[in-house]
């Protein structure tokens, strides 16, 4: 009964994604520069699908493991680490540094450091906090603040020209993404997606908590390590590709929970992915056509997501 309603919802969301995606690709298409415009738009859409999928899937799994609806890997300090990496590169090598200028090198370096950081933090955190949400939140805030402060300190020391160039990497952007990086990221995300979907039923069991999961025969500790690694990879490649969009995951996964009102990961995973892609498409259209590139897409999404985050916190504290 509920499943049928949710299936219908998935179909509606899919159609919506297709329609909005189609609109984005076709809107004001100029036939004189078709061969330039079309591939560039297609690239953006593909990037949005990849990033939306990575962020949505990783956030759903992260929230299932930690059994909370407020935290996401990005909020746990990952975004600040990304900014820190970029700042350090400019601080040491200047804005002409090959690490910053060469997309490919920057991508690989950022991704590796992010994966490493995330895995270390997760390992350590879950051992000592037993995934108590508020302790996690606290540590996330501390880590985030720590790396942000370090970054701001360094940013004050670098010369203003370099800072301008650095500033562009502080906001996520879907413009002018290196095509081969799109394919690499797409491949990685697809691989992770296959691994997750192959065993999505065990996510349903993990949502019941450790005791129930062990009782029902899930090899809990191993499964959690595997999932945390997948989360680390997904968030890292997405962030390394386009930059930080802190509140995207939080926004779309909570919207998915509200819409589907179920614990079933079949719906949560697919639903939040579709919502993420729709959100990114709408955000991109707003940036391009309403704000004429004056406002970054991440600013729009973080504004919406940030407000939603505050509402969630208020709701949570009232319970």
């Amino acid at each position: 009964m509920l499943d049928r309603k949710n299936n219908r919802l998935l179909i509606v969301l899919s159609i919506l994604t297709l329609v909005i995606g189609g609109c984005y690709i076709l809107y004001q298409l100029n036939f004189d520069i078709l061969f330039y415009q079309l591939p560039s738009r297609l690239n953006r859409v593909v990037t949005m699908i990849i990033v939306g999928t990575a962020i949505a899937i990783s956030t759903v799994i992260f929230q299932t493991i930690t059994r909370n609806r407020i935290l996401t890997p990005s909020i746990m300090g990952l975004d600040s680490v990304y900014l820190f990496i970029q700042t350090v590169i400019v601080f040491i090598g200047g804005a002409q540094s090959i690490l910053l200028m060469n997309d490919f090198v920057n991508y690989i370096a950022s991704m590796l450091i992010l994966v490493l950081f995330t895995v270390l933090v997760f390992r350590y955190l879950f051992k000592f906090t037993g995934s108590h949400v508020f302790l996690l939140l606290l540590i996330g805030i501390i880590l985030g603040t720590f790396f942000s402060s370090l970054s701001s300190f360094m940013q004050m020391l670098i010369n203003p020209d370099d800072f301008l160039i650095l500033q562009s990497s502080m906001f996520a952007s879907f413009n002018a993404i290196n095509e081969s990086l799109i394919w690499i990221t797409g491949g990685v995300v697809l691989l992770m997606l296959v691994i997750v979907l192959k065993d999505f039923h065990s996510l349903d069991v993990i949502a019941l908590g450790r005791d129930h999961a062990v009782n029902l025969g899930v090899n809990y500790d191993r499964k959690i390590s595997q999932l945390l690694l997948i989360i680390a990879v997904l968030v890292s490649v997405a962030t390394a590709l386009v930059g930080p969009i802190m509140f995207l995951g939080l926004l779309v996964v909570n919207l998915a929970h509200e819409m589907f009102r179920t614990f079933k990961h079949r719906y949560l995973l697919i639903g939040s992915t579709l919502i993420a892609v729709i959100t990114l498409l709408l955000g991109q259209m707003l940036t391009q056509y309403v704000f004429k590139q004056a406002v970054e897409i991440s600013v729009i999404i973080n504004l919406a997501g940030g407000i939603y985050f505050i509402i969630l916190m208020l709701k949570e504290s009232r319970r």
Partner: peptide, 11 residues
């Protein structure tokens, strides 16, 4: 193995 035990004991 945990999954085999789950068919034998429930808690």
């Amino acid at each position: 193995p945990s999954d085999k035990l789950a068919k034998k004991i429930a808690i």
